[in-house]
Nucleic acid binder design. Sequence first.
DNA 1: AAAAGTTGTTACAAGATGTTAACAGAATAT
DNA 2: ATATTCTGTTAACATCTTGTAACAACTTTT
Lengths: 234, 234
Amino acid sequence: MTSAAAHIVVIEDDAVTRTALAGYLETFGYRVTVCAGAEAAERVLNQESPDLLIVDINLSGKDGLEITREQRARSEIGIILLSGRTDDVDRIVGLELGADDYVCKPFNRRELLARVKNLLRRTAAMRQLARRVVHFAGFTFDTAARHVVGAGGESIQLTRAEYELLRAFVLNPGIVMNRDRLLSAITHRRNVTSTRTVDVMVKRLREKFGDDPKVPRIFGTSHGEGYVFTAPLA
Amino acid sequence: MTSAAAHIVVIEDDAVTRTALAGYLETFGYRVTVCAGAEAAERVLNQESPDLLIVDINLSGKDGLEITREQRARSEIGIILLSGRTDDVDRIVGLELGADDYVCKPFNRRELLARVKNLLRRTAAMRQLARRVVHFAGFTFDTAARHVVGAGGESIQLTRAEYELLRAFVLNPGIVMNRDRLLSAITHRRNVTSTRTVDVMVKRLREKFGDDPKVPRIFGTSHGEGYVFTAPLA
DNA sequence: AAAAGTTGTTACAAGATGTTAACAGAATAT
DNA sequence: ATATTCTGTTAACATCTTGTAACAACTTTT
């Protein structure tokens, strides 16, 4: 598995399937966001960069095929289509639009999980090959090398958790993230309860980046809500 | 897409299906090698590095699942299983062994083609890595000759285990691998107790490549999870 | 302004990794 | 065949990382 929990977005208008699917995937440590329709999903897809999309093909409004076409045009995100019908045409059209997989309902959960795992393994290589370097507040953050260089060229060493946290921040600039979400980004253990861990990690990041908690330039506090990455990304 | 035609190996004991499939794929410009069984296929797989494997699950002798297991243990080649039966168990086992897809006979040719295309797109990034000679951090690693040359042209001698470990790293850049996985890459024993062996091997690799564990440029540590290859591949 | 709740900071214990040394078995040379 | 060298593994201990508790400082609400 890759380090941080993979983020899976489920777009499904049937509430029962939606909830069951999300619950099942969550027990395997994935971060799951559920959407009832294309509109809600697009907000998520525009703000974040999920790793995998599971889409019902028969949605009211914009359907699964349309979503597949749009997403594939702009990203290499993994796409699994769900369908109630065993319809050859739908399946072939979906696959030809670039969906990676097509699963018919009622589907076997274990099978879907295996497909999710395999597809995440495939897309992980692609995601990592696209080396991303981010600049902010004079720092240079190489996400692939897990490495930060300061304004003066000095190397800043990050621990694993600090790296994951910083990555979560720069992937979601300007978005307030609550502690649960940040925690799921930095921890690999399942049975963790304390969200105060996040506070401590943020403090440690602030220390390494010289950010004053009273006047934060990079890691802002949103009282009662969580933290935000506020530095301009260059 | 890569410039050269993708190479697809079809392993299928039914001559009719085999020929039809090969002919169909060839009309789309793929290079296709057909094999009636596992033995013939292994000769091809050992000599060349095909891009995709289409395997019938019910072969006499070594079956498709066994082939899947073996191939997945040593490469990231794309694998599509074919089956005459609509058997949930077979399908799930196949997928859990790491097969990328599972298609039931009689299959729709157009559907299979779409799946082949999609899978080749996914594995393209990985095939890029499977090159014989890899450059990183000033070193040149010839995977076939098991030989490394440093920036100054000096030869760096690797032991078998070190070579296997380095190979596992280079094939999975930027992906955190846990000790079990790394261990299975360097050892072929079954009854392994301690995974600390990996730590020692990583230390020795770091020594030979001049990588400081406190500021790792090549072999990164992911606390609580494992190790990552973080050097940019050129 | 006091109360309630939230966040910042510090210190510490548990857990994980880095490193060295030692050793048995495998490979190689004599 | 025997001696020698090399390799992979294990154990032990030093060092680093991480999660948590406790309390101080701060913010919001009443």
